[in-house]
């Protein structure tokens, strides 16, 4: 009897096993493009042609050169992406926070309406503003406006890209901060108000310190979005020296059609900043994604 019950207790739970097996199969599927890319990126040309993409390189077919070659090609793109993505990220998050505060924790009617107008901006297809956008930045010629400061004039396309990304990033940041600010206990703000604190003081002393977690979410989400974008960059940037990294990668794949090892290394180098941010701040990224969609 006792052995029998012991057996039943230790009986493998088949539904749990099936569950984990399914999950592991899904993991394998979700990681397979990255795994095959990573393995291919460290093989020689002969190596990736002769072996399956998912097996590690055979002895003698290991190569680090694809990474060096790809890095050389993407170097200036990486610098340019850092130059425009970081200011655009900080600007859109900061302005989003201030805007959300002005539309949430102050007392007047019609806030929801202004908010609707802003939020609709999250969902518009960027195609519907591309032609005017390229016209706008031709008319507002930053290059000649900034001619007195040559280093900035050379980078005027990147400045235009920064402003553009900031403008289109504000709606989503506002929405993220607004959800957070609605949950802030209003009695604290009321007390400060009764005490004569101005709107600016309340923002600076009460709201801003409480916004730190949401700043993490907005900054991470925005950085990922802006770094990853290609469409605005290819429309606004025509000077090769201003290419951002997604453009450099796209050009690399076009010029090295059959050198998949270099292409894969290039893809990883391009993705590395967002991958690192995601691995460290996955929770915040998930929150941003859930709050704002794409």
């Amino acid at each position: 009897m006792s052995t029998f019950s012991a057996l039943t207790d230790n009986r493998p739970d088949w539904s749990r096993i099936a569950l984990y097996a399914t999950l592991l199969a899904m993991i394998a599927f979700y990681l397979s493009p990255l795994e095959s890319g990573l393995m291919t990126s460290i093989k020689t040309q002969a190596g990736f042609q002769q072996t399956s993409p998912f097996v590690p390189p055979l002895p003698g077919q290991f190569a680090i050169e694809p990474w060096i070659e790809a890095f050389g090609r993407l170097q200036s793109g990486l610098v340019n992406s850092v130059l425009f993505a970081i200011p655009a990220t900080i600007l859109s998050a900061t302005i989003g926070s201030i805007t959300a505060y002005g539309l949430t924790n102050t007392k007047w009617r019609g806030q929801a309406l202004v908010l609707m107008v802003l939020i609709a901006g999250i969902f518009i297809p960027y195609q519907s503003v591309l032609v005017p956008l390229s016209r706008f930045w031709t008319i507002v010629d930053l290059g000649s406006l900034l001619a007195v400061i040559p280093p900035l004039a050379d980078r005027s396309e990147l400045i235009a890209l920064t402003i553009t990304h900031t403008a289109y990033g504000i709606p989503i940041c506002t929405l993220l901060f607004r959800a957070h600010y609605k949950s802030i206990d209003s009695s604290m703000i009321e007390a400060a108000r009764l005490d004569g604190a101005t709107i600016a003081t309340i923002y600076y002393r009460i709201i801003l310190p409480l916004s730190i977690p949401m700043f993490a979410v907005a900054l991470i989400y925005q950085f990922t979005n802006i770094w990853n974008d290609l469409l605005f960059a290819i429309v606004l940037i025509s000077d090769n020296s201003n290419d951002v990294v997604t453009m450099s990668l796209q050009k690399l794949t076009g010029s090295m059609v059959s050198q998949y090892n270099i292409q894969m290394a290039g893809a990883f180098i391009t993705a590395l900043p967002t991958l690192l941010v995601y691995i460290v701040f996955g929770e915040q990224f998930a929150e941003g994604v859930a709050g704002g969609g794409t």
């Binding site: 493009p33 095959s36 770094w227 290609l230 997604t246 990668l249 894969m264 893809a267 993705a271």
Partner: peptide
């Protein structure tokens, strides 16, 4: 499962073209 969302479409297109 969420990791692909953090990648650029440029990157994922390069990966999938190879896939």
């Amino acid at each position: 499962f969420l990791l692909p969302m953090s990648l650029s479409f440029v990157v994922t297109a390069v990966f999938w073209a190879w896939m």
